[in-house]
Design a protein around this nucleic acid. Sequence first.
DNA 1: CGGGACGCCTGTGAGC
DNA 2: TGCTCACAGGCGTCCC
Length: 294
Amino acid sequence: MPELPEVEVTRRTIADALRGAAVRVARLGKPLRWPLGCAPQTLAGRVIGEVSRRGKYLWLPLGPRSGHAPEDAGGLLIHLGMSGSLSLNPTSASGACASGPSASGPSAAGPHDHFEMDTSSGTLRLRDPRRFGAVVWSASPDSPPASTLLQRLGPEPFDPALTPQTFHAALHRRRGAIKTVILGGTAMVGAGNIYACEALFRAGIDPRTRSDRISRPRAERLLAALRETLAQAISLGGSTLRDFRDAHGMDGAYQAHAGVYGREGEPCPGCGQKVRRIVQAQRATYFCPRCQKR
DNA sequence: CGGGACGCCTGTGAGC
DNA sequence: TGCTCACAGGCGTCCC
């Protein structure tokens, strides 16, 4: 599911509320992709810092427990996998859940909620039916296990250090299809299947084009298209194809603006030609055979 | 090392 | 209506 825009939308909808909040209790559901790496009760009493994002990962810093040294601090590296979403429900006024016929409201834990953390600002909950997501304790983003996962990531899309020159050079090092290279995240992180398809459409580039054959001007256009696509998706709250909601439960709206993704056989919004669907590296690719050139 | 296939899980929709 | 099958937004690992 969640590609960079959905993760960023999630970050933005939880960061303000969680900043400075204290963890009361953490609970685990079924196993996620990787084990938490610590006992959930060791999260209690910690104060949450500034939630940040790297690629499609969130980093939720947690201060030391009271009475412990500063080195006791750490944080949670969170990945939403294919079907994950985070929700943050305000703490109920009464505090305790009254049992009764109408006790289970919309904020009750469901069968797909596999990580929960009660905080002074509400309950943070990871809902992930497919359980490809993960919540992993790490002493810092720069130490294992977080660093192991983060170190292989390419540059952030909105990093000014990512220039047309460096992007073109990164593309020039790969010989696979440009769509596959974008998905791989070595040249730039953040675009998954939807936004890779959409950015290539926007840039007028055939997804089957070999990465090392992309000219400098086309690399520049592709970089701009990726940035525009991701920025537009963030401003629209991401894409909700099935599972994704922001932390307040709101659907994304980008999917209605998609030009080709999921539109096999429909007319291209640019030229009217039928959108094609092919498979590249086990993933569906949608493109316009007329507007997108090799 | 680059590139491709596989697997992790569950839910959903299409087709029979 | 009910069953089976293919497929789904990610990504680490294994193999050539």
